[in-house]
């Protein structure tokens, strides 16, 4: 990758293990997430992708190491990890349905605001929020409750919420699942636009989408890293083919 020699804000994961009462959902994963690329994380159901992200964002306890800017994420609380610049979305859309699109973004932008200023109502819309509204294409829906958004729009709103947080590392868990092909394409273009010097980790099952937008791919299987590389390298990998043919024909043949 062209940007990789500039990479200073990389996230380095060493021997990460998540143990659920003896069952290792993540089993000794080594992974380096570099800046400036769309890093796809794929693997069959139950491979441990979500659990890996859960461990990196403080939702479940993991052992090993995950270093970002001299901090070990595995020892930190969730909200401090976010403040460090690491954001995530969830597999189920989780915007605040009763709040407007604008309010959703404004709350997400609030981490960078002094607490004492929160006793005021929002005056003008913060620039950061305004920009994010444009970027994710929801400016016209700014005052609508997030609950009325279509599924795809909710996911874009979630991406917008990470943007206003100024997340340097974004974990997107199955963001395009359930989207129409048009929406997928828009999402892909959106991610390309915003990646800049960020690290965007995309967890995905859609192989078409991956082929089209991935800069780098990591394949997980049974809690371990099975293969890593460019799309072509990964697709040529014998073990990857076995896993996908063995457990999920659909994905390999999809498109």
């Amino acid at each position: 990758m062209t940007a990789s020699f500039l990479a200073e804000d990389y996230l380095e994961i060493r021997d990460l293990t998540v143990d659920f009462d003896g069952f290792k959902a993540v089993d000794g994963v080594d992974l380096t997430l570099l800046q400036g690329r769309l890093h796809f994380l794929i693997g069959p159901n139950g491979a441990g992708k979500t659990t890996l992200v859960d461990a990196l964002t403080g939702l479940v306890r993991g052992t090993g190491g995950a270093k970002f800017r001299d901090h070990d994420l595995l020892t930190m609380k969730s909200h401090m990890i976010v403040r460090l610049g690491i954001g995530r979305t969830f597999q189920t859309a989780s915007v605040f349905e009763q709040l407007s699109v604008l309010q959703n973004l404004d709350i997400a932008a609030g981490v960078h605001r002094a607490a004492r200023r929160s006793v005021f109502a929002r005056g003008r819309v913060p620039e950061r929020v305004e920009q994010a509204l444009e970027t994710i294409g929801l400016a016209d829906l700014a005052h609508r409750p997030a609950g009325i958004l279509a599924h795809g729009q909710k996911q874009w709103l979630e991406v917008g919420m990470l943007l206003v947080q100024d997340a340097k590392v974004m974990f997107l868990d199955e963001t395009v699942a359930g989207m129409s092909s048009g929406e997928r394409e828009e999402t892909g273009e959106l991610l390309k636009r915003i990646v800049g010097d960020r690290t965007i980790v995309v967890i995905e099952h859609d192989m078409d989408f991956m082929r089209r937008y991935a800069d780098f791919v990591t394949v997980m299987h049974t809690g371990r890293v099975l293969a890593e590389g460019t799309v072509a390298e990964v697709q040529a990998d014998q073990r990857v083919q076995e896993v996908y043919l063995g457990t999920a024909t659909e994905a390999a043949t999809h498109g």
Partner: peptide, 27 residues
């Protein structure tokens, strides 16, 4: 004033989805 403030919005958001608020960087 409190209910229309940002804090008021945040409080309602916390009530409705506490875990989500945590992942926006708030305690």
């Amino acid at each position: 004033q409190l209910y229309r403030s940002r804090y008021g919005e945040l409080l309602v958001a916390t009530r409705d989805a506490e875990e989500r608020i945590r992942f926006l960087g708030y305690d």
